[in-house]
Design a protein around this nucleic acid. Structure first.
Lengths: 158, 158
DNA sequence: GTCGCTGCAAAGTCTTTGCAGAGAG
DNA sequence: CTCTCTGCAAAGACTTTGCAGCGAC
């Protein structure tokens, strides 16, 4: 186990669970558990934001300057996580892909077009209708997402 | 007026309306109405698909081989249309941006992850809830979008 | 005639890939 | 010890920009 890990400050039962899922996934595919992969997962977990590959990279470089993590590794790990459904990417607006941990409960997003902030929400009625619609159209639904765009309270008062 | 235009086969009142909005928009900004811009608008209008810049370019090259429309012009025109809200882009899945005319009535999308096809739909209940949610969260809603991902009927039987 | 537009090619971004050495199992 | 990972740099894919000649008005 890595030295680095002992520096993390937001370790929780939830995170331990996530980490062990990840390790299991790796083992099942004869992949290796490396410091880089751990740091990426942990950073995604500890961030409240939705991260781009670039911002993830910067965060990691700042927190672990000695690790010299390459951007290519970030991309490789994100797509590994994405293919294993541990992470979901959002591609709202202009600014490229943003990633979030998919382990979290399903939710939708409401995005402020002024400040770029993203708030999460869930609405049961909408969830139900989405299933109904997929059925009506003969689709076998695997996933869904919804975004509302607007101006948030704070930006309205500015 | 261009020679080219007389070749189009799906001219409708709706299209004429769209075209005249476009011309007005151009005039207002002292921009010029060119054959290329006309062809792009018309091709977007006549296509039932959601087009990528690349696929738009190919369509146009095939239909008007003499025009030698450059890909750069496609990009420039799409972003002009986008900034004027005449066109909306969707960025589902992996395959980059797809554009659709925004003049059409609002609708959501259900996407087959096997064949990539996109079907449009509208659901009143969902529309209502979206407005309600934005209100609850103090957002001034400007727009929203929803996607359902799954496997379509045809792909299920394959 | 003026001034914006276009195609082309070059330059930018963002993302992926090849490779040789490092490191997990 | 084996075989996957990693960082680096080079290559790709996609998009934007600079420029000189063309064309709408």
């Amino acid at each position: 186990m890595s030295q680095v890990a002992t520096n993390f400050n937001h370790r929780t039962i939830e995170y331990e669970q996530l980490l062990s899922n990840f390790k299991e996934l790796l083992k099942k595919n004869s992949l290796k558990f490396t410091i880089q992969r751990e740091v990426i997962l942990e950073t995604l977990y500890n961030s409240n934001e939705h991260l781009t590959p670039e911002s993830l990279h910067t965060l990691i470089k700042n927190k672990f300057p000695d690790l010299k993590t390459g951007i290519a590794t970030i991309y490789r790990t994100l797509s590994l996580l994405e293919n294993s459904d541990m992470v979901t990417f959002l591609s709202f607006g202009a600014s490229g892909k943003k990633y979030e941990l998919g382990a979290k409960k399903h939710h939708d997003h409401i995005i402020c077009t002024a400040c770029g902030n993203i708030t999460e929400f869930v609405d049961e009625q909408i969830e139900k209708r989405q299933h109904a619609i997929a059925n009506e159209l003969g689709f076998k639904m695997s996933n869904h997402s919804m975004q509302i765009y607007g101006i948030c309270k704070q930006c309205q008062t500015k």
